[in-house]
Amino acid sequence: MSWLILILSGALEAVWAAALHRTSQAKGRRRIMPAALFLISVIASTGGLAVAMQSIPTGTAYAVWVGVGVVLTSAYAMVTNVERATAARLLLLAGIAACVVGLKVVA
């Protein structure tokens, strides 16, 4: 169960990163929703990380949390055309994903 919570918390890291980006682009009242989403998702994400760290070693949990977050954040940025999807970028992100899977296998 801790691993599922950790993966979901990593996914929420991508949500708060995207919401933070949208907050910086919005003006006036349009800023409230991304800011609220940012606050809710950052609290849930770090809370989930804290719960997972009760049974998963700190270094492993943090590396998986960040790895999941960075891969999903980058994928979102590529899908929304904020970043270009180059072969090198995709290969390196696949390497990060493989390392996250490797940490699960050896932990």
Rank of each mutant, 00 (worst) to 15 (best):
L12N: 04
E13S: 05
E13C: 10
A14P: 00
A14Y: 00
W16F: 14
W16L: 03
A17Q: 04
A17G: 08
A17T: 07
A19M: 12
L20Y: 02
R22L: 15
R22E: 12
T23N: 06
S24T: 13
A26Y: 06
A26T: 11
A26P: 07
G28W: 07
R29T: 13
R29Q: 14
R30S: 14
R31V: 12
M33S: 06
P34E: 12
A35D: 05
A36P: 00
L39W: 06
L39E: 09
I40E: 01
I40T: 09
S41V: 08
S41H: 03
V42W: 07
V42N: 06
V42M: 06
V42Q: 07
I43G: 00
A44R: 07
A44K: 04
S45N: 06
S45K: 00
S45M: 04
T46W: 09
G48Y: 13
L49Q: 02
V51Q: 11
A52H: 08
A52N: 04
A52T: 12
M53E: 13
M53Y: 07
Q54R: 15
Q54E: 15
I56T: 08
I56D: 04
T58N: 12
G59H: 13
T60V: 15
A61W: 07
A61K: 00
A61N: 03
A61T: 11
A63C: 10
V64F: 05
W65F: 11
G67P: 06
V70H: 03
V70R: 00
V71R: 01
L72Q: 03
T73E: 02
A75V: 14
A75L: 10
A75N: 01
Y76W: 13
Y76A: 02
Y76Q: 02
A77M: 15
M78P: 02
M78S: 09
V79I: 15
V79W: 13
T80P: 03
T80L: 02
N81H: 15
N81M: 14
V82Y: 05
E83P: 01
E83F: 01
R84I: 11
T86P: 05
A87N: 14
R89T: 10
L91R: 07
L91Y: 11
L92A: 11
L92F: 15
L92K: 10
L93F: 05
A94E: 11
A94L: 15
G95P: 07
I96P: 00
A97T: 08
A98F: 03
A98N: 06
C99R: 03
C99F: 15
V100A: 03
V101E: 04
V101R: 06
G102Y: 04
G102S: 06
L103G: 02
L103P: 06
L103D: 02
V105Y: 00
V106I: 14
V106D: 03
